[in-house]
Design a protein around this nucleic acid. Structure first.
Length: 489
RNA sequence: GCAGGAGUAGCUUAAUGGCUAAGAGCACUAGGUUUGGGACCUAGGGGGUGUCAGUUCGAGUCUGACUUCUUGCACCA
């Protein structure tokens, strides 16, 4: 019988989440507040995500570059909205040298080594990038400039949670410059579609594409687009954002280009990013009380072969055949020959790690020319003839990927409720949670009032939905369309 | 940042302010017996209790500060 080492979701969702992060070897805490160590298995998943996203960026014409970790303090104050948005959570470098402590114990900051201009550890790189772009952009022929960087950023968060909110996190940030407003908007919309496609087809995580309200918009943006996912506890997770920055940064950093009519114009900008927060989304979209579940397309190990009861020549030989055939199809496979662990232990361990497919191979199977195939998503186990097993697995991985998405989508749809009164809003939020589609009068004041009364925020104004006239659930004022509310991470 | 809770071996944990006792289970090491859903036996190794200071004849046990984790609030991706 399985030991209870993962807290059940229904008992304590937060504890369940933390148990998965720890027991599936995704990450652990570090001595630095809010900063985590991403362990090899967890990083393996991130690397797969990163590889896919990177190739999607390249396919759409972007190239990678790298900008400094440190940003001169003065840069941050150039865009008023931007600095307001980040000032409270910046790490600041003030000195450049340590010295032996005068009282002989350890080291202290050398007071003589104060920096002339203090440096900010980037919370995001708009400022230093726009400073740089000024020199890169002269003429319309230099546009569009389509650059992405993979980097770490720091936001000094007061309250952190593994992956979902950490002081330091990994992400990609795209920063593009365009000759026209239309082209910049199109870029930010294109990236939004790219993110949604990635979330749904690779992470098997259904998302709602939408527009952020003014209140939830990125500091310094004219428009923020978002993909919003729904977690198993009924809370929403902002999973990626794409910003149309207008000419705000171009003006702040004086980035202009000469157009075809020989006139100087400010460029139009976008920025967009997804982070290691997606790992949190992955965990909370699919996993269960037995541990992590990783969609096949992102699994560091897609198939594991467990010899039963222990490896021997005959089993090794059969396993090697399967391994070769799977690898030929680009399927990653691990053969666990560890003799110290019994099969039952291994079963539980790989379930904990979310390996999509497990093969059990023993004398009994070989005698029947069969192999036992177990799928992680449904926990079904069945015997499959060895001759067709590679085809079977190939299809099964596709089926698991699809099943995870369908299951998550069904959950999300069931947890999305339309309401027309504030009483219904409150009761649905209380009893059921999830997304609530409701009319809103369009004002920040009402949005904040609803947040104050219910803790729910407007996650987005969905893009793929019909306009529908109605009245605001709080004020009764006219509304042109429904927006999506939820309690959020 | 505020308010709770908590830091004893890698993990889970025991130990009234005291007999010159930090005890266990899992994990680990060695050997053996086992092996189709987290095996068992025997023998071992590992901790001075998050850090610093204080109270005391005596401190995992009490006090203070700091630090990390955690829950909630506020803030944010």
């Amino acid at each position: 019988m399985a030991k209870e080492i993962i807290t059940e979701r229904s008992v304590d969702y937060s504890a369940w989440y933390n148990d998965i992060v720890r027991n599936a070897n995704l990450a652990e805490t570090s001595p630095v507040r809010g900063c985590m160590v991403i362990k090899p298995y967890g990083f393996g998943i991130w690397e797969k995500m990163k590889a896919q996203l990177d190739s999607m960026f390249k396919e759409t014409g972007h190239t990678n570059a790298y900008f400094p970790l440190f940003i001169p303090k003065s840069f941050l104050s150039k865009e008023a909205q931007h600095v307001e948005g980040f000032a409270k959570e910046c790490a600041v470098v003030t000195h450049h040298r340590l010295m032996n402590s005068p009282d002989g114990d350890g080291v202290v900051v050398d007071p003589d080594a104060r920096l002339e201009e203090e440096l900010i550890v980037r919370p995001t790189s708009e400022t230093i990038i726009w400073h740089t772009y000024k020199n890169w952009i002269n003429t319309y022929r230099d546009l569009p400039l389509l650059i992405n960087q993979w980097a770490n950023v720091v936001r000094w968060e007061m309250r952190t949670r593994p992956f979902l909110r950490t002081a330091e996190f990994l992400w990609q940030e795209g920063h593009t410059a365009h000759a026209t407003k239309e082209e910049a908007i199109e870029e930010s919309r294109m990236i939004l579609d790219l993110y949604a496609k990635f979330a749904e087809e690779w992470m098997a995580m259904p998302v709602i594409k939408g527009i952020k309200t003014a209140n939830e918009r990125f500091a310094g943006a004219d428009e923020t687009f978002t993909i919003e996912a729904l977690m198993q506890d009924g809370r929403a997770l902002q999973s990626g954002t794409s910003h149309f920055l207008g000419q705000n940064f171009a003006k702040a950093f004086d980035v202009t280009f000469q157009n075809q009519n020989n006139r100087e114009e400010h460029v139009w900008a976008t920025s967009w990013g997804v982070s290691t927060r997606l790992m949190g989304g992955l965990i909370m979209t699919h996993s269960d009380d037995d541990g992590l579940i990783v969609p096949p397309k992102l699994a560091p190990i897609q198939v594991v072969i467990v010899p039963i009861p222990k490896p021997n020549g005959e089993i090794d030989e059969a396993a090697e055949k399967i391994i070769k055939a799977l690898k030929d199809r680009g399927i990653s496979v691990k053969y666990d020959r560890d003799k110290k662990k019994r099969p039952g232990f291994k079963f539980n361990e790989y379930e904990m790690h979310g390996v999509p497919v497990r093969l059990g191979l023993g004398k009994r199977d070989l005698a029947n020319n069969q192999v036992e195939v177990a799928r992680r998503d449904t926990m079904e186990v069945k015997s499959v003839n060895l001759d067709g097993v590679v085809d079977y697995i190939d299809n099964l991985l596709v089926e698991i990927q699809d099943n995870l998405f369908q299951k998550a989508k069904l959950f999300r749809d069931e947890k999305t409720t339309s309401v027309d009164t504030f009483d219904d809003f409150k009761s649905v939020l209380e009893s059921k949670g999830g997304f609530i589609s409701a009319h809103w009068d369009g004002t920040t004041e009402t949005e904040l009032k609803i947040k104050e009364l219910t803790k729910a925020t407007i996650r987005c104004i969905p893009i793929d939905q019909e306009d529908e006239a109605g009245t605001c659930i709080l004020t009764g004022k006219p509304s042109e369309r429904r927006v999506l509310f939820a309690k959020a991470y």
